[in-house]
């Protein structure tokens, strides 16, 4: 049919109910390889639920999720990871009793069986994210922003094609946000890493994403460049009563 290659990520007509609540209701978007796309919307819009359906945590009640043309539906979270999708958790889930470095080593062991290789990769990633000097600390001793950083480090260590970031910059100081944005940009430029990020920090969304998808109450609102989206009255509408963009 279509001669063009399938996009890296294809989401079409995604639906998820939780006991009568339509948490996600007909969300569609596509992400080409090498893109950075933001998924925004007010609290409870269904953003995390979309991620959970991509990552194999929830099976959708309807719709398609495809990675490079291959359906991810029915795969377990570990299989989705091995297919090349790394994700962070909005509510961070560090391996509390392991050191920061060991946390990241677990991620690196996705692609190697050798501990020395995994450790080298872990140090590289920790350097990149500015956690290197804390690598021997137990993860439970980290502050919340550092834990978010650790989520990113672990996911990155799995060497994903697609990275799903769920509010990793919440709680960071502006300077820290800028540094993390710079890190993602560099990764995107140098390794071609594709990123979908859920983010409330508009400073980061504007600086990082090439395209923004807006959803509200589980339903698509609009899609466009960051500049288009922040001027769209429908977007301003759905944020009414929320913190301003």
């Amino acid at each position: 049919m279509s001669p063009s290659p399938p996009p890296l990520l294809l989401i079409e007509g995604l639906v998820k109910h939780f006991r009568g609540l339509r948490a996600v209701d007909g969300v569609s978007f596509r992400v080409e390889a090498g893109e950075i796309v933001a998924l925004i919307g007010p609290n409870g819009a269904g953003k995390t639920t979309v991620f959970n359906m991509i990552a194999g945590v929830f099976e959708p009640d309807g719709g398609r999720v495809e990675l490079e043309g291959r359906s991810l539906i029915g795969l377990r979270p570990d299989q989705v990871c091995r297919a090349g999708v790394g994700r962070t958790f909005q509510l961070v889930k560090p391996f509390g009793n392991l050191s920061v470095e060991e946390n990241v080593v677990v991620g690196a062991l996705r692609w190697t069986h050798e501990i020395t290789k995994a450790r080298a990769q872990a140090r590289e990633v920790l350097d990149l994210l500015g956690l290197a000097d804390k690598r021997r600390q137990p993860a439970r001793s980290l502050t919340l922003p550092d834990r978010k950083c650790l989520e990113v480090a672990r996911a990155l260590a799995t060497k994903p094609k697609l990275l799903l970031l769920d509010e990793v910059m919440a709680g960071l100081r502006p300077a820290e946000t800028d540094r993390m944005v710079e890190t993602f940009r560099r990764l995107n430029r140098e390794t071609g890493l594709t990123i979908v990020l859920i983010e409330h920090v508009m400073r980061a969304v504007m600086a990082l994403s090439q395209r923004v998808v807006v959803i509200n109450s589980g339903q698509p609102v609009c899609e466009g460049t960051p500049e288009e989206v922040v001027r769209d009255p429908r977007v301003l509408d759905c944020y009414l009563g929320e913190e301003p963009l």
């Binding site: 990552a55 945590v57 377990r76 979270p77 570990d78 990871c81 091995r82 790394g86 994700r87 958790f89 889930k93 560090p94 391996f95 509390g96 009793n97 392991l98 060991e102 080593v105 677990v106 991620g107 062991l109 996705r110 069986h113 501990i115 995994a118 672990r154 996911a155 799995t158």
Partner: peptide, 24 residues
Amino acid sequence: NSRLGYTWLAVREDQDAAAALGIN
């Protein structure tokens, strides 16, 4: 000090996070 050992520790600490990192 093996991959299996790290896998176990990860599962012990948090099963969802372990799964998200590719662990069965």
